[in-house]
């Protein structure tokens, strides 16, 4: 009781009596990144999934519990089939990506830096882009057989297109004022390309790179589901025949993990290389 009396006795300073404070402007950029927040969403989904399974709300035949998937994963790993399938898939995605990346950069440079190159290359790539790449699968099987080559070729095409498009548009969109500066400073053509054109086009290249990385996984999933003789997709395809949902989920989780890791790697490199940029994401 006495405590209440003392609190009322000391008059609280009301906001209106306080000296006027300088109010910071409302910040429009989203602000500082919270650490590891990218994992928050997936963790939440996992928690919901686990809770629903534990509560018996999910049909284990359709969506098995997370721990069942984990068990199956461990089992597949220890009996050697999973590492083997992962390795095959990684090799496909890796070679396809490497070829696509090289081709995308080379073609973009050739088309972006010379008018002849542009005339020869740009139209063809735009045409190639208009054809859905996965629609080329039957033709490529006839040409290259149903082995590894055609899979790698399809992935390479899926990868090179976004890398080419973004890099090329960044190269040709280089700020005209910087071109003028290079002329004034008497830069050689080589120095102009190295110090102005390439650094100026890097942000566009990275947009293409991230799309390309995603594309390589996308191509892989489709190829391995419809024309698989080994690999993660093959494993999942088999599991479908035997109704093993847990194995399918293991495959999806592995795809997801690789997608996430490769995207983070590209982001990390991008942040390093483009450290001069202070954008919303910083």
């Amino acid at each position: 009781m006495s405590a209440t009396v003392t609190t009322t006795a000391t008059a609280p300073v009301t906001p209106t009596e306080a000296s006027p404070q300088v109010r910071r402007r409302r910040r429009l950029s989203p602000g500082r990144r919270l650490p590891a927040t990218r994992l928050l969403g997936p963790a939440l989904i996992l928690a919901l999934w686990a809770a629903a399974s534990a509560a018996g709300q999910l049909d284990p035949g359709a969506i098995p519990a997370p721990w069942t998937v984990l068990e199956t994963g461990v089992h597949l790993w220890t009996d050697g089939t999973l590492p083997n399938d992962i390795l095959t898939s990684l090799q496909r995605a890796g070679s396809g990506f490497a070829i696509g990346l090289t081709a995308g950069i080379a073609l973009a440079l050739a088309a972006g830096l010379s008018r002849t190159g542009e005339a020869l290359i740009d139209g063809s790539v735009q045409l190639n882009r208009a054809i859905p790449t996965l629609g080329l699968i039957p033709l490529f099987i006839l040409w290259l057989g149903i082995g590894e080559t055609f899979k790698v070729a399809i992935i390479a095409i899926v990868v090179y297109i976004p890398i080419y498009l973004n890099t090329h548009s960044a190269l040709s969109g280089i700020d005209h004022r910087f071109v003028e500066l290079a002329e004034v400073q008497g830069l050689s053509r080589y120095a102009f390309i190295r110090r102005i054109v390439i650094p100026g086009a890097l942000p566009g290249f990275f947009v293409g790179l991230r799309l390309g990385v995603t594309g390589s996984w996308l191509g892989l999933v489709v190829l391995e589901q419809i024309n698989a003789t080994s690999g993660l997709g093959y494993m999942m395809f088999q599991a479908q025949n035997y109704g093993q949902t847990d194995v399918i989920l293991v495959g999806l989780v592995v795809y997801g993990i690789f997608g996430l890791i490769s995207d983070s790697a590209v982001r990390l490199i991008e942040r390093r290389v483009l450290s001069w940029r202070r954008t919303l994401s910083s």
Partner: peptide, 13 residues
């Protein structure tokens, strides 16, 4: 050039 430090900008060319 926003991607070059000040000294490298001065030394351009």
């Amino acid at each position: 050039l926003p991607w070059q430090r000040v000294l490298d900008n001065v030394l351009l060319g």
